[in-house]
Write a protein that binds this DNA or RNA. Structure first.
Length: 864
RNA sequence: GCCGGGAUGGCGGAACUGGUAGACGCACGGGACUCAAAAUCCCGCGGUGGCAACACCAUGGGGGUUCGAUUCCCCCUCCCGGCACCA
């Protein structure tokens, strides 16, 4: 056995054995319970970042833990390989996105292997391969047949200089990222998937996902946004003919407080009014300028303009003016809202700005109401007031009554409305899955027949930033109509990459199947037992995957309602930002690795200096690691310097998996030292640990065994609840215990028994987190050939029982000492001992004891 | 703006169902070993007062429930994630 810990040699050796033995190949059948453990597949951006290392370490720890607990584990890996960054890299380096992507995959695969992840590489897939994306196309055609995929116009960001559709990410402060031109909204035809048809089930089946975090389920429920309300018509006369302006509201109880109606800039009524009013036309156009991002639209200043049109209040016939409001969304409800400034904050701000009347129609138990300042409780539910026949009614009663009255007049009805919109999947980009449609002059849009799939994406394009490069490829675009055979053009839009990631978890069960999208092996492996990925995917990716699964189920392709049984959403990895601002106002960012800190004598940081010139830099707070802020840390440096085990161990120790993790280089060395200490301790005591003579543990170092088994119980409990930082802590505590004086002073036989037991526990607790060193020591110390096959250590309940326990002594809830009592001591004895305690006496000091609270096994509190 | 989450020493974090706040680690300070350095080992380490025993204060801020609150309830501040074309 080597006296020194040599991670590079150990890790290479152990990884070679795993590869030679195909240790992580998942078998499609077993008497053991199956465990499908999946981490979200990476986008091959170049090299692994810390978020990847964290994500895949969590997944690997769970995979290895469940394997040791007797499960047949599948942990696959693939590549989310289509996407925008490949096109950006292509423009910057004049390399085709395909080559860039495949090179990145090769490098990142090497990195994943060097981290020792227990992955079944035989099932690897990449979404940019035709044998994967052909099934996107095939399934899209099935959805088209069923009407679940359809064509309609949608709004996109348009760069007028480059004549290109921009992703939201490419719009910076309302301007195109390359041209700096002001971005416009533009309507273009797109394909949509009818996810709203599944809204009800996507919402209701969240209740059948107990293994999902509540916050993710809440976010999804809010995103789907089921609202119960009333659809209300405001009658008016338009071009001499009677017409109705429809609005949707969840607060029909406030209808008598309506003082205006506002429509979206895209609303037909706005267009009509704009024809007669150039100022209004200008305003409507101004609203249409700018990007399509909801955050941008919703946070802009509320602006409006009257249309000069009037409608009638549906219940009292009052004349109400119609406004155009930039805060009204065309995509939600009717694209028009009734304005109730008395009880809606946005309407209040709007009315205040334009001098529209504000009317109180809800009473809040007589609390004083002022129309000069908004109070957050004005939007609460209450009782109708100033509302004629509805006065005194509660929310439910007034809504029922108002809906009934509106229905009788043909001016409204109760309605359920969803916030969820259908999923637009058309992208005007090159590096994605082609949409299998041919546009024929005679036959229109013709689906590509199944036997002509896949529609292959040419892999040698180099985009230049203007338009979609596929439009410049006659070899791709020009084709024959599958129906009539005449010359026709291929659709050049590609699919949203969320399509690729909406079903890849199914494909891992049958990655070698080329005759069909999925096969019967899915029935064994699916659903995914544990899914792990970033919290930033809590809504879109997870919702689309749930939707896709349900559609595949409806088509009879899979037998599952939900794809992911348990979900762990890991927190983001953050790092501090350092910068200098030049006189010209330009900001230069510096990598935290190039910055050194000045400390005071207490170790408190007082300044930050750039290593290269020794001058100070400013701190810009802590953000997610990104290229633009130059605050990323390359995990490869860490692996090269300390080895995979240290990188993995530190990642798990630093923070609970679901919390954000602020990067801190300093701690890494400490964990490397721990593994070195472990190795040295094992080396120095190998003779004692190896000694296998049959010896009982009865009466051996009772106190130490008590602590050992307490740590084991805690660590196992923490594995189960996936709090790996305290598992790592427990391994520290065990090594501290084994190294401590209590053990060193034992006679050799007792020491040998204890060290052997302690080490056997410690190595198995470490095996999921630091598998290489655990395997090496397991073998060196003679516990067995392969720790992968070892079973989980069992807690010795007898070791946990103590004869005497310490109770916390409190007076009026304040700590005043401890008392030691027998395990079996009854309440009366504890009370007497507590009151007699000299320190307690000091604080009771003449006051009367009102009562004594005894929490068995924990504390006693004297109340005076 | 809307939805979700978070805030505990110099730092990462711990505290299981409301029961000793700061486990464990890092950083820092002191000491041992060494010609020296590294490595290693030992001691200290929330704040204030005190020689000490100890006392008081302290879990973002304010209020409440309780014998007892980091934990439960209400209000506020700041930070992070998502907002449908980044993945």
């Amino acid at each position: 056995m080597q006296p020194q810990y040599q991670p590079a040699a150990i890790e290479q050796q152990v990884q070679k054995e795993w590869a030679d033995n195909k240790s992580f190949r998942a078998i499609d059948a077993s008497h053991k319970p199956k465990f499908y453990c999946l981490s979200m597949f990476p986008y091959p951006s170049g090299k692994l970042h810390m978020g990847h290392v964290r994500n895949y370490t969590i997944g690997d720890v769970l995979s290895r833990y469940y394997r040791m607990r007797g499960h047949n584990v599948l942990q696959p890996m693939g590549w989310d390989a289509f996407g925008l960054p490949a096109e950006n890299a292509a423009m910057a380096n004049h390399v085709p996105p395909a080559k860039w992507t495949y090179d990145n995959i090769a490098y990142m695969k090497k990195q994943l292997k060097s981290l020792g992840f227990a992955i079944d590489w035989d099932r690897e897939l990449a979404t940019c391969r035709p044998d994967y994306y052909r099934w996107n196309q095939w399934f899209f055609l099935r959805m088209l047949e069923k009407g679940l995929a359809y064509k309609k116009t949608g709004t996109v960001n348009w760069d007028p200089v480059d004549q290109t559709v921009l992703a939201n990410e490419q719009v910076i402060d309302g301007r195109g990222w390359r041209t700096g031109a002001l971005v416009e909204k533009r309507e273009i035809p797109m394909y949509y998937l009818a996810i709203t048809r599944h809204a009800e089930e996507l919402l209701s089946s969240l209740d059948r996902l107990p293994g999902w975090p509540e916050r993710v389920k809440t976010m999804q429920a809010n995103w789907i946004g089921k609202s119960f309300g009333v659809r209300i018509a405001f009658p008016h006369v338009l071009d001499g003919k009677p017409d109705k302006l429809w609005v949707f509201t969840t607060r029909a109880d406030t209808i008598m407080g309506v003082t205006f109606v506002a429509v979206a800039a895209e609303h037909p009524l706005a267009a009509k009014a704009a024809k007669r009013d150039p100022a209004l036309a200008e305003f409507v156009e101004a609203c249409k300028r700018g990007g399509v991002q909801e955050a941008e639209i919703a946070s802009q200043e509320k602006k409006g303009m009257p249309t000069g049109l009037f409608v009638e209040h549906p219940l009292n016939g009052q004349k109400i003016e119609v406004w155009v409001g930039n805060y009204v969304l065309m995509s939600y409800g009717e694209g028009a809202v009734m304005g109730v400034p008395g009880h809606d904050e946005r309407d209040f701000a709007f009315a205040w700005k334009y001098g529209l009347p504000i009317r109180q129609v809800i009473d809040f138990e007589g609390r004083p109401y002022s129309m000069h300042a908004w109070q957050s409780w004005y939007a609460d539910y209450g009782v109708c007031v100033n509302s004629g026949k509805y006065d005194g009614m509660s929310y439910e009663r007034s809504v029922d009554a108002i809906a009934a009255d509106l229905k009788a007049k043909g001016l409204g009805e109760k309605q359920v409305t969803w916030r969820l919109r259908d999923w637009g999947i058309s992208r005007q980009r090159y590096w994605g899955c082609p949409i299998p449609i041919v546009h024929c002059g005679s036959c229109g849009d013709v689906p590509v027949p199944d036997d002509q799939l896949p529609v292959l994406l040419p892999e040698d394009c180099v985009p230049d930033g203007s338009g979609n490069p596929l439009n410049k490829r006659p070899d791709f675009v020009d084709t024959a109509c599958p129906k009539c055979g005449k010359p026709a053009k291929r659709e050049t839009d590609t699919m949203d990459t969320f399509v690729d990631s909406s079903w890849y978890f199914l494909r891992f069960a049958c990655a070698d199947q080329h005759a069909s999208m999925v096969d019967e092996r899915l029935n064994y492996w699916l659903p995914v037992d544990q899914y792990i990925g970033g919290i930033e995917h809590a809504i879109l990716h997870l919702l689309y995957s749930r939707f896709w699964t349900k559609v595949m189920r409806d088509f009879g392709l899979v037998k599952l309602d939900e794809p992911f049984t348990r979900l762990l959403t890991q927190g983001m990895v953050l790092n501090e930002i350092f910068f200098r601002k030049s006189d010209a106002g330009r900001i230069e960012y510096f990598n935290p690795g190039d910055v050194q800190f000045e400390m005071d004598s207490q170790g408190k940081r007082v300044g930050a200096l750039l290593l290269s010139d020794g001058k100070s830099v400013e701190s810009g707070g802590i953000r997610t690691m990104s290229k633009s802020k130059n605050n990323g840390v390359d995990p490869q440096t860490l692996i090269d310097q300390y080895g995979a085990d240290t990188a993995r161990f530190f990642m798990m120790l630093a923070s609970p998996p679901e919390d954000t993790l602020a990067w801190n280089d300093e701690g890494v060395k400490g964990q490397y030292n721990f593994l070195r200490r472990l190795w040295k301790f094992a080396h120095d005591n190998q003779a004692l640990i190896r000694d296998e003579k049959e010896r009982g543990v009865d009466g051996v170092a009772k106190d130490t065994r008590h602590h050992l088994h307490q740590h084991l119980r805690q660590a196992t409990f923490d594995y189960e609840r996936k709090q790996f930082n305290t598992v790592a802590t427990a391994t520290h505590k065990i090594l501290n215990l084994l190294e401590g004086d209590a053990v060193a002073l034992l006679p050799p036989v007792a020491r040998s028994v204890l060290l052997r037991e302690g080490m056997a526990i410690l190595l198995r607790l470490l095996a999921p987190i630091t598998p290489h060193i655990a395997q090496a020591l397991w073998r060196e110390l003679g516990f067995g050939a392969d720790i992968l096959e070892a079973s989980w250590p069992e807690v010795d309940e007898a070791a946990l029982v103590q004869d005497e326990i310490d109770l916390v002594l409190q007076v009026n809830g304040k700590l005043r000492g401890n008392i030691r009592v027998a395990r079996t001591a009854d309440r009366a004895v504890i009370e007497r001992l507590a009151i007699q305690n000299p320190n307690a006496q000091k604080h009771i000091a003449g006051q009367t004891v009102k009562k004594v609270v005894v929490v068995p096994g924990r504390l006693v509190n004297i109340v005076v």
